[in-house]
Simulated scan of single mutants.
Amino acid sequence: MQAMGHIILREWKRILRLPVFYIVMLVIPGLLFSFYALIYQQRDARNLAFAIWDEDQSPLSRQLIFLLQQRETLQITRRVGTEAEVKQLIQNGVILGAVHFPANMQKDIYSRHQAHVTLYTNAASLVPAKLIYKAVAEVVIMGSSGVVLQKLVKTGMKADRAMALANPVKLNSYQLYNASYNYQEYLVPGLITVGIQMILIISSMLALNYEWKTNTMQELYGLAKGSALLVITAKTIAHLVFSWVNFILIAFVLFPWFGIGVPVATGKFFLMYTLLSVACIGIGMFISALFKDVMLSGDVALFYTSPAFVFSGFTFPRWAMPWYDQYYATIMPYTPFLDAFFKVYYMNLPMHYAQADINKLVLFCAVMFPTAILLFQHQFNSSVNEQAA
């Protein structure tokens, strides 16, 4: 225990003294996480530039335009007269969408003919396009129901009966766990936690083989009495403590400052964060024990961690990915962490809902640490034989 304490203190001093450690573990997290939160400071997509192409010029089309103007999602910035003009404005990035009310729309509706309203959106901007569609669809459905309602009332039908016929099925929708489609609330925690995975794997990847680069491996060998188990255990504890420092920064500084997160689920977030941290440290130690060369280890760590956000299923469901991408997602600890994070943090469910994901994170630890110990013990023994020779 005394030797372990010496190695832990020694590792803390190295982290605080060597730029390769303190920049990655202490400086970059605060800057990077704040930058992520500031990107989505607006929180949700509002006032999306939108154009009107009104060939009908009727009281009905003016009423629909008025209703569109009341939508926070849309900001009507242009009036256009042709389809070519709509496409040109979208291509130039001036607008994100437009709606076309055809000539004789009101006349066709009143004469019981179907009218065709056309919506143009820039689907290259996927989320804004969906928000525009949602806003316009609600207005058009509301407007068409209103026309039918007026016609029925004019025939002498009672208002409640007319309403039942004009709108026979009423849809009640409830958006759970991100009702306002808040970018900051939804994306920032995900970006921060995937950043934590990368930071922890890279910093712990340097924990062992950087000793060779700084010519301090023999000193470490003497402190540990040649025990790779002692070295990896002590360094894991040292790096885990610094990961908790970043947890404090995330949960008690950044989240409250930007008004995001689910405070009541902070305890469960801490447990999942700790499991992710230990799993990432184990992977970093494994890479460090596998390759003596720091540059090669760094390349491997970056190649392994870089696609984590894409393959995790955060923005696109994993089941819709090719099987080889799904397989790649399973060999990253961020994937089960993210599944558990949604359940116990966003949804604030009990921990047993995430039991399968917890088991996967524990499996990472159970495989990576023993393998890293065996590989590093071989490095230790080899270094002694080289010194003796």
Rank of each mutant, 00 (worst) to 15 (best):
L32M: 15
R17H: 10
A45R: 07
R43Q: 13
R79D: 12
N47R: 13
K107F: 11
P59M: 07
E83P: 00
I23V: 15
Q106E: 14
Q63D: 14
Q70L: 10
D54E: 08
R46G: 12
N92E: 14
Y36K: 05
I23P: 04
Y22N: 05
L67M: 12
A84N: 11
A37N: 05
I65Y: 00
A84D: 13
Q91I: 12
V20W: 01
Q69D: 12
E85H: 02
L67G: 06
R17V: 06
V80M: 08
R71A: 14
H113T: 03
L32Q: 13
V27F: 13
L26G: 02
Q69H: 10
S34D: 03
F33T: 01
L89N: 00
S34L: 11
G93L: 06
K107Q: 15
E55L: 14
V94M: 10
W53S: 14
D44Q: 12
L18I: 12
L67A: 15
S111A: 13
V99L: 11
L38H: 06
R78K: 12
A103M: 11
T77F: 02
L64T: 09
T73F: 00
N92M: 09
L32P: 02
I76V: 11
I28R: 00
A49V: 06
I90A: 08
L31E: 02
F66A: 15
T82R: 03
S111N: 15
G93A: 06
I39M: 13
L16M: 09
R112N: 15
Q70T: 11
H100R: 14
R14K: 09
L31M: 13
Q75Y: 06
Q106A: 08
E72Q: 12
Y40V: 08
P102I: 08
Q41W: 09
L38G: 04
F21A: 02
I15A: 01
E55C: 10
D108Y: 08
L64E: 05
L96P: 02
Q42T: 09
L64D: 07
P59N: 07
F101S: 07
F101K: 07
L38Q: 11
A98R: 06
I65A: 04
L31K: 07
Q70S: 12
D108F: 03
L74M: 01
E55S: 14
N47K: 13
K13Y: 04
Y22S: 06
R78E: 12
Y110D: 06
Q88H: 11
R17E: 07
F50R: 03
P29I: 05
K87R: 15
G81Q: 07
D44K: 13
I76D: 01
F50K: 03
W53Q: 15
L68I: 02
L18F: 07
L38S: 10
I23R: 09
I28Y: 01
T82G: 01
G93C: 06
P59H: 08
P19N: 06
W53L: 15
E72Y: 02
Q88I: 03
E72R: 12
N92R: 14
